[in-house]
């Protein structure tokens, strides 16, 4: 980190400092599992597959699970009637640099129980693969594509795993990794040349472009049968 005697603009002149290589885990201090019913249940049911539990930002319970069993654990969290995490708010990833493993983060919310839980999988840099959760939450589809695009994590079983934000033929790697240089790997001239040489029709069919315009099937609520005076009925 920045030496303490440098401050303000002097510190800026130093430029970024590569993160120091430290231990393999980035988990915080363990917390009391009894503070969150789902965490306690996870420990009881999955035991050793739940690697770590901590509390972040006051009340956000974070659970680290074994990547090999993540699909099973997340599926149980979604389906068990006592937990029912039916809303997947976000799938993202964190690279802490310094050779530390990448974290895949699942941010869950249970609408019936009004409860949040954050599940993390730590993936070592030489095994960046985890099961896709598109089968559980459809919302994960584009989110996992984004994580794949920017971090290079492969999601096993994803129906359509390809880049989503960067150009389809982007050849410089995965930009949000800590070892990715800020200005990219190629020279600006090469980047400009590649950008202008993009063949858009090769990657986007007319169907892709039109897909947002397909007529949506709208199901209106059934009006109350004639005779019964519903709250919205005119009288």
């Amino acid at each position: 980190m920045t030496p303490p005697d440098k401050s303000g603009l002097d510190a800026i002149e130093e430029g970024p400092v590569p993160s120091a290589a430290v231990g393999p885990t980035v988990a915080g201090a363990p917390a009391d599992p009894s503070g969150h019913p789902s965490v306690a249940a996870l420990f009881g049911r999955f035991g050793s597959a739940v690697l770590h539990h901590g509390v972040s930002a006051g009340s956000q319970h974070v659970v680290h699970v074994e990547p090999a069993r993540s699909l099973e654990i997340l599926g149980w969290l979604r389906d068990d009637p006592a937990h029912r995490y039916d809303l997947l708010a976000d799938v993202t990833a964190v690279d802490h640099g310094g050779g530390r493993p990448l974290e895949v983060v699942y941010q869950l919310w249970s609408i019936p129980h009004r409860r949040a839980l954050r599940v993390k999988c730590l993936l070592p840099l030489d095994a960046l693969e985890v099961d896709s959760v598109v089968g559980l939450w459809n919302a994960a589809n584009w989110l996992e594509r984004e994580v794949y695009d920017l971090f290079g994590i492969t999601f096993r079983g994803h129906p359509d795993l390809r880049r989503i934000l960067m150009p389809m033929d982007y050849a410089e790697g995965h930009p949000l990794r800590k070892d990715f240089p800020l200005r990219g790997r190629f020279s600006r001239a090469e980047q400009t040349r590649r950008a202008l040489a993009q063949d858009l029709e090769k990657f986007y069919t007319p169907h892709d472009i039109e897909i947002g315009r397909e007529p949506q099937q709208v199901t209106l609520p059934v009006p109350p049968a004639s005779g019964s005076q519903g709250p919205g009925a005119e009288s």
Binding site: I12, E14, G15, P16, P181, L182, R183, S187
Partner: peptide, 10 residues
């Protein structure tokens, strides 16, 4: 500030 972050550093 980006002078430290060209293609050759890191």
């Amino acid at each position: 500030n980006s002078t430290q972050q060209n293609q050759l550093t890191g």
